[in-house]
Amino acid sequence: MKRTFISLVLLLTVGAQRSAAGEILVVSGPNFTVKKELTKEQVRLAFLGKPASVDGVQLHALDRKEHSVKTNFYKQVVGRTSVEMKAYWSEQVFTSLGYPPPVAADLNDLKKQLSDSKDEISYVDGSENTSGLNVLMRVSY
């Protein structure tokens, strides 16, 4: 009984550690027009270049350069690996259907680009400094 109890506690601890392993924040600048939380589907569509609108505002994605947060964001929110995203944009670009979103060079550039935008969204890691940004959605993984 004691052994079972210890095993359970261990399992729960490991599970809790896993669930709190990281967090991704979907963010906007202070001038973003929409004043409510976004859904995962709206964010996913925006980053695939598909129509995604909230309260009549068409969302536009601002991507990030290669960074661990990018890998986690696409895996957790868009549901695709980096290889799958390469294939997706290859299909879009070379069949003339669309182009990938613009890319922010770093966090400062991301904040600068979002600061004036009314419809752009991006993402940061939970551990990054979010001063000056609105958090529109949180995804724990």
């Binding site: 294939a87 299909e91 003339s96 259907l97």
Partner: peptide, 22 residues
């Protein structure tokens, strides 16, 4: 809306016919 020489979406992979990666 596109004007010029545009790919015809005839078969499923027509627009990718030159892009083997796709």
């Amino acid at each position: 809306a596109r004007a010029g020489r545009v790919l015809a979406p005839v078969w499923l992979y027509s627009q990718s016919r030159n892009v083997g990666y796709n």
